[in-house]
Design a protein around this nucleic acid. Sequence first.
RNA 1: GCGGGGGUGCCCGAGCCUGGCCAAAGGGGUCGGGCUUAGGACCCGAUGGCGUAGGCCUGCGUGGGUUCAAAUCCCACCCCCCGCACCA
Length: 968
Amino acid sequence: MFEVRDRRAKDAIERLKVIEEKWQKWWEEEHIYEADPDPSKPKFFVTFPYPYVNAFPHLGSAFTILRVDITARYKRMRGYNVLFPQGWHATGGPIMAAALRLREGDPKIIWTLLSMGVGDDELEKFKDPKYWVFYFTKGWKRDLKRYGMSIDWRREFYTTYLNPYYSKFVQWQYLRLKEKGLVDKGEHPVVWCPKEKKVVGDHDRPDEYAGISPTEAVIIKFRTEDGTVFPALTYRPETVFGVTNVWVNPEAEYLTAIVDGEKWIINEYASRELADQKHEVKVVGRVRGVDLLGIMVQNPVDGRWVPVLPASFVDPDMGTGVVMSVPAHAPFDYRGLLDLQERPDLLERYGLDPSIVRGLKPIPLIRLEGYSEIPARDAVEKRGVKSQEERWALEAATKEIYTKEYHTGILLEITGRWAGMKVSEAKEEITDWLVSRGDAVRVYTLPERVYCRCGARTHVKIVSDQWFLLYSKPEWKRLAHRAVDRMKFYPETLRAEFHKLIDWYKDWAFTHRNELGTPLPWDESWVIESLSDSTIYMAYYTIAKYLQHPEKYGIRPEQLVPEVFDYIFKGVGDVEKVSERTGIPASLLKQMREEFLYWYPVDLRISGKDLIQNHLVFFIFHHTALFEEKHWPRGIGVNGWVLLRGEKMSKQKGNFILLRQALDLWGADATRWAEIMGGGDPGLDDANFEPDVAEKAALELEEWIRFASENYNADAREEYTTVDMWFESVMNRLIAETTDHMEETKYKSALVTGYYHLQAAYRWYIRRAGRPNKDLLRKFIETQTLLIAPFAPHTAEEVWHRIGKKGSIVFAEWPEADTSKIRPEIEAAEEILKAVIEDAREIMKFVEKPRRLKVIVAAGWKYNVLTAVLRHRQEGKPLKDSIREALRELEGQVPKREIGNLVKLLVKYPEVLSRLTPRDVEMRHLKEAADFIARELGLEEAIVIAEEESTDQKKKIALPGKPALVLE
RNA sequence: GCGGGGGUGCCCGAGCCUGGCCAAAGGGGUCGGGCUUAGGACCCGAUGGCGUAGGCCUGCGUGGGUUCAAAUCCCACCCCCCGCACCA
């Protein structure tokens, strides 16, 4: 699918790969990225959310972790002691489900594994979920190393009971949360497989059923004279006021069942679903739908008697199989009723007298702007629907009417005390009222059929003794808000978003079954679900170095009683006693405590935007519950996905690249480069990876190695000229700008500024100066290499050594902008020069064979005026006022008859204010560049003269920063 | 629906917070020139329309508004993307 076609790029990449491997090996041997507490240095702790290890990293995950690595590298160069650890996430269902599916021989799983390079002979091993964890953990680590990640691998770990050390840590967390009253037991609706008796997550279903979750619905009871209940399931209980009849499917079979002591007519599906939702259901008989027709039932809200009628659109397998009919507001009902009225044979077929529907008319109960009294009729007629069999059109009509009525519909008089209210406001109240009268029951159901992977039809079950994290608690929310107030966000707009999310969060069901994870400490039949075991594990990194290495520190999992973590993370308890109780040496406990205190809190957590609404909120919540305020997170950075050639990556479409494939194709540095160039600034926009950019990057990087090593000690010019002054100014300014971008994690901007702009400046410098100044050339080579070091660390390290620097560039000092070298007036003068050349080019289009250019620099008094104007502008005055003020100040010092002309020019070219520079500087600069101008334009000569000395008529249009030009 | 992000020149993409230097950075593509045995490599120029002196006109989703001045600020509308809880 992807290949490097360009021959030169291909060769360059191969050479770069050799260099990359060399330095990776060296870094590892030197333990460069292993960070231990060092009180003499400030620390910086940066993390990437541990990935779920059911596949290898692709360009998307690689992008986010690259932003973490760049942060780590930059901070090291700024003198920080940086901790960048990495762990692996195995908690949850997908791996388990995939392993089970493989045992069943699912071709999709086989294909997925084979496409990631798993050998045929190895497939067998993946039937064990553990193998997935080990296999992909290893794979990730290998890929990240090749990618040049500056990770301290001593702190690596994975989750679940497979790692008892980590499980102990998670259990400590939940024991303490429970003590604080932040977890509780409750009920929770889930999608349930009655055959396998388990919750059916997305990974347990065929793809077409993914994403469908339980929705709230209401069953309204329509009773016959003898009390038999026709339970109509509806999403719109408020429309009960407009019921004209009840529908059943005449071809279906119904059950009679005793539900909570009443006799109900329901379908098989509802009998199962209700039984799983705390209702007592006892099936006592069966009845054909056709035999229910014509029965009269009573509308509970107004006592009207309405008939049970046949409708083919009633799905006998959904809901209860009984539907209430509101023809004024439900297109299906409207059309269904019309069918019966227009075609008496439909009724006669079931032995019903057509007179039964003669008097039935839609009963409006909602007023909807832009529609008649009967919106359902409008929607049906608009689409020309002729029969209830036209499902698709009726679905569309239903969607239209439901949505509009819900949001803008107003209830009519017929609804009694709700008249005048909006549907969206009255709905819940009406439901409560119906329920309180015993005329309705709240239930959960699925809006569509959902099948389990095992083939069974699922329904909604209410799970009891489900455990919840009580995010709804106001005290907890308050703490979380406070944390958000104190944090730094990249981009800053995230702050408001997090405040909203914290308010929005309700309680979270945090225990699952049949998944990998850590057992709930007080009820091991549950496992703590994946988001909930990943909230504060950054603290675990600080001590994973000790816990995960029993060969070195001798700690066993069973020694990790809760008191150990209390002591390490909170300083609670007596260390000697904890030591005595656990057998862990007190000195080691103290060391871990010290290490935690040194590294914590997390300074910056960088993640993809997908984790904003879940993990990152949990991350904040749990820290505030468990840690002292000084240990709450300090920063969050977020970035978008990675598109590949402008499209979402998708295995199906074939535009999908694993990190390892990218590394094979372009090597580490070029891949990193292209990822950042695709959109490395923080934010919610997606980045776009272009393979061509990676190829180009490889060429540029190799070129830089060549250029730097050939020129660092090369012979160059000794004297220091104005042009050198210009380049030195630009270089320092670009350093400052790049540094600002780095601080904001705007890595694309930093790379554009620190590399592309600097390179462009150097090119112009050479064009201007011919040969570079010797000192500046060296400075340029050093600066450029340092500025790209976080992005292309291997290339930078190579250059660093080739030019004879000692030590690793990893710890080299980030360039400091020398602000004394930044000379705005020189840069402005250079801008003027460029403008002169550009303008002259424009004029040359119209002049035949010019030989000479006269550059007429504006008269001195004009500079005085503009200087004053600029001063007023900078005070915030509008342009016009600034000019007026300036002229008033300088009254008598300017030639009156020329004022009008100057004002006109200034209004036309306000940009000259931005490059206003002292007249002598402009004059000198242009004079020195006269030969250059002539050369650039292909003229014999260019001369620079003052307006005062010129006799040309043109001289009048000269402005400071925009000399008059005369070509002859 | 709720919440969030976005619509810029042939394409990608910066700018928008802090209005004028924005016909709008930088790439890519295309065209022309240079270098060269050749080049997909490198360098220079052009790339909305018109224009025989540096100009004029049109223009940053659509329609209004504020302002001496708007891609940038305000209002309304249209369109696209993402999340909404057992998917990590």
